[in-house]
Nucleic acid binder design. Sequence first.
DNA 1: CCGTTGCATAGACCTTTGTCAATCCGAGGG
DNA 2: CCCTCGGATTGACAAAGGTCTATGCAACGG
Lengths: 118, 118
Amino acid sequence: MTTVTQGLAVVDVQPVCCTPISAAPLDRATAEGLARLLKAVADPTRLQLLSLVAGTQAREACVCELTEPLGLTQPTVSHHLKVLVDAGLLTRKRRGPWAYYGLVAERFDDLRTLLSTP
Amino acid sequence: MTTVTQGLAVVDVQPVCCTPISAAPLDRATAEGLARLLKAVADPTRLQLLSLVAGTQAREACVCELTEPLGLTQPTVSHHLKVLVDAGLLTRKRRGPWAYYGLVAERFDDLRTLLSTP
DNA sequence: CCGTTGCATAGACCTTTGTCAATCCGAGGG
DNA sequence: CCCTCGGATTGACAAAGGTCTATGCAACGG
Protein backbone atom coordinates (compact mmCIF):
# COMPACT_ATOMS: atom_id res chain seq x y z
CA MET A 1 0.00 0.00 0.00
CA THR A 2 1.53 3.27 -1.11
CA THR A 3 1.01 6.51 0.76
CA VAL A 4 1.18 10.16 -0.20
CA THR A 5 1.68 13.29 1.83
CA GLN A 6 -1.03 15.94 1.72
CA GLY A 7 -0.15 18.80 4.02
CA LEU A 8 0.65 17.04 7.28
CA ALA A 9 -1.76 14.14 6.98
CA VAL A 10 -0.77 10.88 5.35
CA VAL A 11 -3.54 9.34 3.33
CA ASP A 12 -3.99 5.92 1.82
CA VAL A 13 -3.97 5.46 -1.92
CA GLN A 14 -6.03 2.63 -3.34
CA PRO A 15 -4.09 -0.45 -4.41
CA VAL A 16 -4.51 -0.08 -8.14
CA CYS A 17 -7.12 -2.07 -10.01
CA CYS A 18 -6.00 -3.02 -13.51
CA THR A 19 -8.25 -6.02 -14.20
CA PRO A 20 -11.52 -5.74 -16.12
CA ILE A 21 -14.68 -5.94 -14.09
CA SER A 22 -15.60 -9.15 -15.88
CA ALA A 23 -12.34 -10.97 -15.16
CA ALA A 24 -13.56 -12.50 -11.90
CA PRO A 25 -16.41 -11.93 -9.42
CA LEU A 26 -15.37 -9.05 -7.17
CA ASP A 27 -15.11 -9.74 -3.46
CA ARG A 28 -16.51 -7.06 -1.18
CA ALA A 29 -13.17 -5.56 -0.14
CA THR A 30 -11.94 -5.11 -3.71
CA ALA A 31 -15.29 -3.69 -4.76
CA GLU A 32 -15.14 -1.13 -1.94
CA GLY A 33 -11.66 -0.03 -2.97
CA LEU A 34 -12.69 0.41 -6.60
CA ALA A 35 -15.88 2.20 -5.55
CA ARG A 36 -13.81 4.72 -3.57
CA LEU A 37 -11.77 5.43 -6.69
CA LEU A 38 -14.86 5.80 -8.87
CA LYS A 39 -16.65 7.95 -6.29
CA ALA A 40 -13.82 10.45 -6.57
CA VAL A 41 -14.70 10.94 -10.24
CA ALA A 42 -18.45 10.64 -9.82
CA ASP A 43 -19.10 14.25 -8.83
CA PRO A 44 -19.95 17.13 -11.16
CA THR A 45 -17.60 19.59 -9.49
CA ARG A 46 -14.68 17.19 -9.58
CA LEU A 47 -15.39 16.32 -13.21
CA GLN A 48 -15.22 20.01 -14.04
CA LEU A 49 -11.96 20.33 -12.12
CA LEU A 50 -10.43 17.40 -14.00
CA SER A 51 -11.68 18.84 -17.25
CA LEU A 52 -10.11 22.22 -16.50
CA VAL A 53 -6.78 20.71 -15.52
CA ALA A 54 -6.76 18.40 -18.54
CA GLY A 55 -7.48 21.38 -20.77
CA THR A 56 -4.38 23.33 -19.75
CA GLN A 57 -1.14 23.39 -21.67
CA ALA A 58 0.96 21.73 -18.97
CA ARG A 59 -1.85 19.48 -17.69
CA GLU A 60 -1.66 21.28 -14.36
CA ALA A 61 -3.24 24.25 -12.63
CA CYS A 62 -3.23 26.07 -9.30
CA VAL A 63 -6.28 26.63 -7.08
CA CYS A 64 -6.51 30.29 -8.01
CA GLU A 65 -7.09 29.34 -11.64
CA LEU A 66 -9.85 26.87 -10.74
CA THR A 67 -11.97 28.63 -8.17
CA GLU A 68 -13.44 31.30 -10.42
CA PRO A 69 -14.67 29.27 -13.43
CA LEU A 70 -16.53 26.98 -11.01
CA GLY A 71 -18.22 29.72 -9.00
CA LEU A 72 -17.42 27.95 -5.73
CA THR A 73 -15.51 29.13 -2.68
CA GLN A 74 -11.80 28.41 -2.34
CA PRO A 75 -12.20 25.96 0.60
CA THR A 76 -14.69 23.92 -1.41
CA VAL A 77 -12.34 23.72 -4.38
CA SER A 78 -9.44 22.75 -2.10
CA HIS A 79 -11.61 20.04 -0.58
CA HIS A 80 -12.42 18.50 -3.95
CA LEU A 81 -8.81 18.67 -5.05
CA LYS A 82 -7.81 16.79 -1.92
CA VAL A 83 -10.32 14.06 -2.72
CA LEU A 84 -8.82 13.70 -6.19
CA VAL A 85 -5.27 13.62 -4.83
CA ASP A 86 -6.20 11.02 -2.22
CA ALA A 87 -7.67 8.90 -5.00
CA GLY A 88 -4.42 9.17 -6.95
CA LEU A 89 -5.99 11.00 -9.87
CA LEU A 90 -4.08 14.25 -9.29
CA THR A 91 -0.66 15.17 -7.92
CA ARG A 92 0.08 18.23 -5.84
CA LYS A 93 3.30 20.25 -6.11
CA ARG A 94 4.05 23.47 -4.26
CA ARG A 95 5.84 26.15 -6.23
CA GLY A 96 6.32 29.32 -4.21
CA PRO A 97 3.03 30.36 -2.67
CA TRP A 98 1.02 28.34 -5.20
CA ALA A 99 -0.05 24.70 -5.22
CA TYR A 100 -0.15 23.11 -8.64
CA TYR A 101 -2.33 20.11 -9.37
CA GLY A 102 -1.48 17.78 -12.25
CA LEU A 103 -3.21 14.84 -13.95
CA VAL A 104 -2.06 11.27 -13.29
CA ALA A 105 -2.72 9.60 -16.63
CA GLU A 106 -1.97 6.07 -15.35
CA ARG A 107 -4.82 6.30 -12.87
CA PHE A 108 -7.24 7.02 -15.72
CA ASP A 109 -5.81 4.07 -17.60
CA ASP A 110 -6.69 1.93 -14.58
CA LEU A 111 -10.28 3.14 -14.70
CA ARG A 112 -10.62 2.43 -18.40
CA THR A 113 -9.24 -1.07 -17.93
CA LEU A 114 -11.66 -1.71 -15.10
CA LEU A 115 -14.60 -0.66 -17.25
CA SER A 116 -13.73 -2.78 -20.27
CA THR A 117 -16.35 -5.37 -21.22
CA PRO A 118 -15.80 -8.89 -22.54
CA MET B 1 -33.73 12.16 -24.86
CA THR B 2 -34.47 8.48 -24.88
CA THR B 3 -36.65 6.82 -22.27
CA VAL B 4 -37.01 3.29 -20.98
CA THR B 5 -39.85 1.55 -19.22
CA GLN B 6 -39.17 0.07 -15.79
CA GLY B 7 -42.35 -1.45 -14.44
CA LEU B 8 -44.86 1.36 -14.85
CA ALA B 9 -42.51 4.29 -14.31
CA VAL B 10 -40.74 5.93 -17.20
CA VAL B 11 -37.25 7.03 -16.34
CA ASP B 12 -34.80 9.31 -18.06
CA VAL B 13 -31.66 7.92 -19.59
CA GLN B 14 -28.64 10.20 -19.71
CA PRO B 15 -27.85 11.77 -23.05
CA VAL B 16 -24.72 9.82 -23.86
CA CYS B 17 -21.30 11.36 -23.31
CA CYS B 18 -18.72 10.16 -25.85
CA THR B 19 -16.17 12.96 -25.69
CA PRO B 20 -13.01 12.76 -23.56
CA ILE B 21 -13.01 14.80 -20.39
CA SER B 22 -10.16 16.89 -21.78
CA ALA B 23 -11.87 17.81 -25.04
CA ALA B 24 -13.46 20.96 -23.67
CA PRO B 25 -14.19 22.49 -20.27
CA LEU B 26 -17.39 20.87 -18.97
CA ASP B 27 -20.33 23.12 -18.25
CA ARG B 28 -22.25 22.38 -15.08
CA ALA B 29 -25.21 20.66 -16.74
CA THR B 30 -23.06 18.24 -18.73
CA ALA B 31 -20.92 17.53 -15.69
CA GLU B 32 -24.02 16.69 -13.66
CA GLY B 33 -25.25 14.27 -16.29
CA LEU B 34 -21.93 12.50 -16.48
CA ALA B 35 -21.68 12.41 -12.69
CA ARG B 36 -25.06 10.66 -12.53
CA LEU B 37 -23.76 8.00 -14.90
CA LEU B 38 -20.53 7.54 -12.94
CA LYS B 39 -22.35 7.49 -9.60
CA ALA B 40 -24.26 4.45 -10.81
CA VAL B 41 -20.98 2.56 -11.10
CA ALA B 42 -19.32 4.09 -8.04
CA ASP B 43 -20.85 1.75 -5.47
CA PRO B 44 -19.35 -1.51 -4.20
CA THR B 45 -22.61 -3.45 -4.40
CA ARG B 46 -23.31 -2.33 -7.96
CA LEU B 47 -19.74 -3.12 -9.00
CA GLN B 48 -20.23 -6.63 -7.66
CA LEU B 49 -23.53 -6.91 -9.53
CA LEU B 50 -21.93 -5.82 -12.79
CA SER B 51 -19.07 -8.20 -12.19
CA LEU B 52 -21.45 -11.10 -11.61
CA VAL B 53 -23.49 -10.33 -14.73
CA ALA B 54 -20.38 -9.85 -16.84
CA GLY B 55 -19.06 -13.17 -15.61
CA THR B 56 -22.03 -15.20 -16.87
CA GLN B 57 -22.13 -17.07 -20.15
CA ALA B 58 -24.90 -15.01 -21.72
CA ARG B 59 -23.86 -11.73 -20.04
CA GLU B 60 -27.18 -11.69 -18.23
CA ALA B 61 -28.65 -12.92 -14.96
CA CYS B 62 -31.90 -12.85 -12.99
CA VAL B 63 -32.33 -11.40 -9.51
CA CYS B 64 -32.50 -14.81 -7.90
CA GLU B 65 -28.97 -15.56 -9.11
CA LEU B 66 -27.61 -12.31 -7.70
CA THR B 67 -29.14 -11.95 -4.28
CA GLU B 68 -27.35 -14.83 -2.56
CA PRO B 69 -23.68 -14.20 -3.55
CA LEU B 70 -24.04 -10.62 -2.26
CA GLY B 71 -25.62 -11.47 1.08
CA LEU B 72 -28.18 -8.68 0.67
CA THR B 73 -31.97 -8.75 0.68
CA GLN B 74 -33.88 -9.06 -2.57
CA PRO B 75 -35.38 -5.54 -2.42
CA THR B 76 -31.93 -4.07 -2.00
CA VAL B 77 -30.62 -5.96 -5.01
CA SER B 78 -33.65 -4.92 -7.07
CA HIS B 79 -33.02 -1.31 -6.04
CA HIS B 80 -29.42 -1.39 -7.26
CA LEU B 81 -30.39 -3.08 -10.50
CA LYS B 82 -32.92 -0.32 -11.13
CA VAL B 83 -30.20 2.28 -10.64
CA LEU B 84 -28.02 0.52 -13.21
CA VAL B 85 -30.91 0.20 -15.68
CA ASP B 86 -31.80 3.89 -15.26
CA ALA B 87 -28.17 4.75 -16.02
CA GLY B 88 -28.33 2.67 -19.19
CA LEU B 89 -25.69 0.20 -18.03
CA LEU B 90 -28.07 -2.76 -17.86
CA THR B 91 -31.16 -3.83 -19.76
CA ARG B 92 -34.13 -5.58 -18.22
CA LYS B 93 -36.11 -8.31 -19.98
CA ARG B 94 -38.94 -10.33 -18.47
CA ARG B 95 -38.99 -14.02 -19.34
CA GLY B 96 -41.77 -15.85 -17.56
CA PRO B 97 -41.69 -15.05 -13.86
CA TRP B 98 -38.03 -13.98 -14.01
CA ALA B 99 -36.42 -10.65 -14.86
CA TYR B 100 -33.14 -10.94 -16.69
CA TYR B 101 -30.58 -8.16 -16.56
CA GLY B 102 -27.97 -7.85 -19.31
CA LEU B 103 -24.88 -5.71 -19.85
CA VAL B 104 -24.97 -2.76 -22.26
CA ALA B 105 -21.44 -2.77 -23.65
CA GLU B 106 -21.84 0.55 -25.48
CA ARG B 107 -22.49 2.34 -22.22
CA PHE B 108 -19.17 1.10 -20.86
CA ASP B 109 -17.49 2.26 -24.06
CA ASP B 110 -18.89 5.71 -23.33
CA LEU B 111 -17.34 5.68 -19.89
CA ARG B 112 -13.94 4.61 -21.20
CA THR B 113 -14.01 7.35 -23.81
CA LEU B 114 -14.92 9.93 -21.19
CA LEU B 115 -12.00 8.88 -19.02
CA SER B 116 -9.35 8.97 -21.75
CA THR B 117 -6.53 11.43 -21.19
CA PRO B 118 -4.72 13.53 -23.77
C1' DC C 1 -60.28 -19.31 -8.33
C1' DC C 2 -56.77 -19.53 -4.86
C1' DG C 3 -51.98 -20.18 -3.48
C1' DT C 4 -47.17 -19.73 -4.55
C1' DT C 5 -43.16 -17.80 -6.38
C1' DG C 6 -40.18 -14.01 -8.25
C1' DC C 7 -39.76 -9.32 -8.39
C1' DA C 8 -40.94 -4.24 -7.63
C1' DT C 9 -42.38 -0.37 -4.70
C1' DA C 10 -43.03 2.46 -0.40
C1' DG C 11 -41.52 4.13 3.80
C1' DA C 12 -38.24 4.54 7.65
C1' DC C 13 -33.66 4.90 9.43
C1' DC C 14 -28.92 6.04 9.57
C1' DT C 15 -24.62 7.25 7.21
C1' DT C 16 -22.17 9.71 3.83
C1' DT C 17 -21.14 13.82 1.41
C1' DG C 18 -21.09 18.65 -0.79
C1' DT C 19 -21.05 23.27 0.58
C1' DC C 20 -20.07 27.33 3.28
C1' DA C 21 -18.14 30.68 6.96
C1' DA C 22 -14.51 31.01 10.03
C1' DT C 23 -9.97 30.08 11.14
C1' DC C 24 -5.28 28.62 10.70
C1' DC C 25 -0.78 27.85 8.34
C1' DG C 26 3.27 29.04 5.26
C1' DA C 27 5.83 31.79 2.14
C1' DG C 28 7.55 36.15 0.92
C1' DG C 29 8.14 41.37 1.06
C1' DG C 30 8.71 45.75 3.35
C1' DC D 1 8.98 41.87 12.76
C1' DC D 2 4.48 42.54 10.86
C1' DC D 3 1.53 42.33 6.89
C1' DT D 4 -0.36 40.17 2.92
C1' DC D 5 -1.66 36.58 -0.08
C1' DG D 6 -2.50 31.67 -1.55
C1' DG D 7 -4.17 27.40 0.48
C1' DA D 8 -5.47 24.05 3.89
C1' DT D 9 -8.34 22.68 7.93
C1' DT D 10 -12.36 22.70 11.03
C1' DG D 11 -17.07 22.60 12.23
C1' DA D 12 -21.88 23.01 10.99
C1' DC D 13 -25.68 22.00 8.20
C1' DA D 14 -28.74 20.23 4.64
C1' DA D 15 -29.16 16.92 1.01
C1' DA D 16 -28.35 12.48 -1.01
C1' DG D 17 -27.91 7.62 -0.73
C1' DG D 18 -27.80 2.46 0.98
C1' DT D 19 -30.15 -0.85 3.61
C1' DC D 20 -33.96 -2.95 5.78
C1' DT D 21 -39.07 -4.42 6.73
C1' DA D 22 -43.51 -4.50 4.99
C1' DT D 23 -46.38 -4.57 1.22
C1' DG D 24 -47.99 -4.75 -3.60
C1' DC D 25 -48.15 -6.91 -8.17
C1' DA D 26 -47.61 -10.31 -12.15
C1' DA D 27 -47.16 -14.95 -13.83
C1' DC D 28 -48.09 -19.52 -13.40
C1' DG D 29 -49.96 -24.26 -11.31
C1' DG D 30 -53.40 -26.79 -9.14
